[in-house]
Design a protein around this nucleic acid. Sequence first.
DNA 1: CGAGTCCTTGACCATAATCAAGATATGTGG
DNA 2: CCACATATCTTGATTATGGTCAAGGACTCG
Lengths: 245, 245
Amino acid sequence: MKSITDCTACPLRKSEVFRSLDARELGFVASMKSGEMRVAPRTRVLDEGVNSPHVFTVLSGWGLREKSLADGRRQILNFVLPGDLVGLQAAMFDAMDHSVEALTDMTLCVFPRREIQRLFHDRPSLGFTVVWHAARNERLLDATLMSVGRCTARERIARALLTIYGKARRIGLSEADGTLSAPITQQHLADALGLSLVHTNRTLKGMVADGLLKWRASRLQLCDEDRMRDIAQMEATAPTALPLI
Amino acid sequence: MKSITDCTACPLRKSEVFRSLDARELGFVASMKSGEMRVAPRTRVLDEGVNSPHVFTVLSGWGLREKSLADGRRQILNFVLPGDLVGLQAAMFDAMDHSVEALTDMTLCVFPRREIQRLFHDRPSLGFTVVWHAARNERLLDATLMSVGRCTARERIARALLTIYGKARRIGLSEADGTLSAPITQQHLADALGLSLVHTNRTLKGMVADGLLKWRASRLQLCDEDRMRDIAQMEATAPTALPLI
DNA sequence: CGAGTCCTTGACCATAATCAAGATATGTGG
DNA sequence: CCACATATCTTGATTATGGTCAAGGACTCG
C-alpha cells in the first residue's frame, strides 16, 4: 500500500492560493477521505455512462473532462488541475454523463459518494464550498460555450490558452520566466474548441508568427498577454482564494 | 402590492413532478422568500457584469440565460422554465457572468443572496438540493457544448428541440396532442446553437419536409421522436422527481 | 534506431455565414 | 376594422471559414 497524504499535511493546503479550512472542516475532510488514487496518463478516472462510487479532488497532475458520441466524435469539456473537484455528478445522479481522463500521472483524493450527503449535514460550510466549485465550473462552461458557439478559431484559441494558462499559473504551475509546461497537444486543443486538428495547427502557427505566443515541446508561453486579451475579449480577473475540499 | 404566493400553497409543489419538502424544509424556504417578482417579456432579470443581491426560483413563464461579447455577438446558454433556480452565481461571486432574460411574462420567487449561506447551515438537505440544481445545469451545459462543438446543424437542432421539449413536457407544459407552445423564435434557436438565423431556418425547413417536426405559430410538435433521437444520438431519460427550492 | 506520437503542409471540398430582399405574421393606434 | 409598423420567417446568390484527405517530417522514448 502506498503512503497516503494526510489532509493536515496536504501539499496543496500549504499554498496560500487555497483557502484554509478551520480545524473542524479539516477534520471532516480527513475523515471523509477513504484513500488516494494514482493513475498513469490516458487512464480513465471516471467513465461516461457508469455509476461511480467516488468523488475526487485532484492532488497533482493534469486531466481532462470529456464527452463522446457513439461514432467517436469527442468534445473536451475542460481541463482539470490540482484543487479541482471531479465526479460530483456521481454523487447526484445514477450515471456519469462525461468521463475524466488523466493527461499526466495524477494523484487524487478519494471520497465515497455517500459521504457527500453527510458532508452537507455535518459541515454545512463545506457544503457551501461544494456549490462554489459547481458554480465555478458552470462559469467556465458558459464561457467555453460562448467561445465555441460564437468565436472564430483564433478567438477560441486565445480564450482557451488564456484560461488554461491563467488557471495553471494561479496554482503556481508556471515558471518564473512565464512559460508553462502543459501536457496538452494540438489535438486536445482542437477537441476542446470544436475545431479540426489541421485548422487548429494552422491558426496556432499564425498566432506564433504574429508574436502572440510560443509553444514548443509542450512549453507554452504567452508573449503578449494584452493582445491576447484583446483578441479574446477577455478581461484579467483578480485572484481570490480557492476553497479546497 | 401584489399578492404573493405562499410557499405552502405553491402551485408548483402541488404537482407530483416536483419532490415534496418536509415541513421544516418548507418552513425554511418560506422564511427565506423575500418576495415575488413579475416581469414582462424581454426584461432582464439578472444582468451580466452586475452584482445581484438576489437568487430566484422560476414560478411561471419562460426565460433564457445568455452571455454577450462587446461587439454584440451573443450565445444563449440555455432556456429556463418553472422550477429552475437562477442566479446562484450571484450568491457565490462578485458579479454575474451571464444574464437572464424573460421570454414571456414571468413570475419569480425572490431570495436574498445572503440567505443562501444560512440555508446551508440551517437546512443542509436544502443545501444538497442547491448542488443538485447546479450539477443538473452542468450536465445540460456539457451536452450543449458537445452539440455546438461537434454536431452538424441538423443534429444540433434535433438535440436542442428534444431537450427543450423534454424539459417542458416533464413539468406539464405540453398539450395532450403532443404539441408544445414555446415562446422561442428561430433566432433564439440559432443563438443557442451557434448557428446563423438563415442556416437554422433552412435546416429546420428540411427537417419539417422530412416529417420530423412541425413548428407553426410558436407551436412545436415532434412528429417522430424516435427518428429525432437517432439523429441526435440521445437516449430517452427516465424522469425522476425534481427537487424544488 | 525504430516505432509511435505529434506536428506540418498542400490540395480540395462542404458546411454554414453573410448579404440582400421580399413575404408573412403580429400587433397597435386611429 | 383598417393602415401602418415591427418582428419573424423565407429564399436566392455569393463567400468564407473551417473540414477532410493525404502524406511527409520531426520529435520522443525505450
